[in-house]
């Protein structure tokens, strides 16, 4: 395991060193400002039924990609935690996953809003919606499991194990389930997905900055949560340390 930990150390070292820097936050704000304003104002292809709702692509798809990135990072940190056993890595894993859960809620809301205008109703038992609802339930269960435990070490270990188990099962299930039933969702059963709009330069020019901007925004939020919790963790441990020292003196 020594060889693997050097790789994970390299990754962690990189993340630790970049977390406090400003360059990617400026990039994030610039991308999001462009994607938000451009997403509203720049021309889009005129398509039947979709019409102006196609602009939802700039907000809905980045939410899912950001969620996936955050879940993957949380998954990676859960593995790192099981390797190292440092509570710092548990804070990373939990905060990244929790931010991912918030983004899954945003993705669901933007998707349902869009479905209301194009499919006629916000919830139509589409397999994509069902798969998403399942993954949301899985991660809400993660929150329930985690918050039910008081002991820090134990909580960290058990929630890391569940996170790895759930994420590794979730990926094949998300791929299988939508293929078992016909879907209305763009990209399924002959419905056009955003790949077919890629040829349209006016959409690509907004979509890719939106991806970069929202992914960076997700990691920015997560990094703020991580840093506040790190401060809290250090303070709490110092308090414990002081008590131990005083009782030893007395």
């Amino acid at each position: 395991m020594a060889g693997d930990s050097s790789m994970s150390k390299g990754l962690q070292g990189f993340i630790d060193s970049q977390m406090r820097l400003w360059w990617w936050k400026v990039l994030c704000v610039a991308c999001l400002a462009f994607a938000t304003i451009g997403g509203m104002l720049l021309p889009v292809p005129r398509l039947n039924i979709l019409n102006e709702t196609i602009r939802n692509l700039y907000y809905h798809v980045p939410m899912w990609i950001t969620m996936m990135m955050l879940y993957m990072a949380g998954f990676a940190y859960s593995i790192i935690y099981l390797r190292t056993g440092k509570l710092k890595d548990d804070i990373f894993a939990y905060q990244l996953t929790a931010t991912g859960i918030a983004f899954s809620v945003f993705g669901m809301i933007t998707g349902m809003e869009w479905a209301k205008y194009t499919w006629g109703e916000a919830w139509s038992n589409d397999p994509k919606q069902l798969g998403t609802a399942l993954s949301m339930l899985i991660y809400f269960a993660y929150l329930v499991l985690r918050n039910g435990m008081k002991d820090e070490e134990k909580r960290a270990k058990i929630s890391a194990v569940y996170n790895i188990f759930a994420f590794a099962l979730l990926i094949p299930l998300i791929w299988i389930l939508p293929r078992m039933v016909d879907s209305l969702h763009p990209g399924n059963g002959g419905n056009p997905a955003f790949k077919s709009y890629d040829r349209d330069f006016s959409m690509t020019i907004v979509l890719y900055p939106a991806f970069i901007g929202w992914i960076l925004m997700g990691f920015w939020i997560a990094s703020i949560c991580i840093r506040t919790n790190m401060v809290r963790y250090k303070q709490e441990n110092r308090y414990q340390y002081d008590i131990e020292k005083n009782s030893a003196n007395a």
Partner: peptide, 22 residues
């Protein structure tokens, strides 16, 4: 997992139902 978390079978159901639905 539920046993190590010192919880009952209700937690097992919460964790398991979404995973086994597919």
């Amino acid at each position: 997992i539920a046993a190590r978390a010192q919880q009952n079978s209700a937690l097992m159901a919460i964790l398991g139902f979404p995973l086994v639905t597919p």
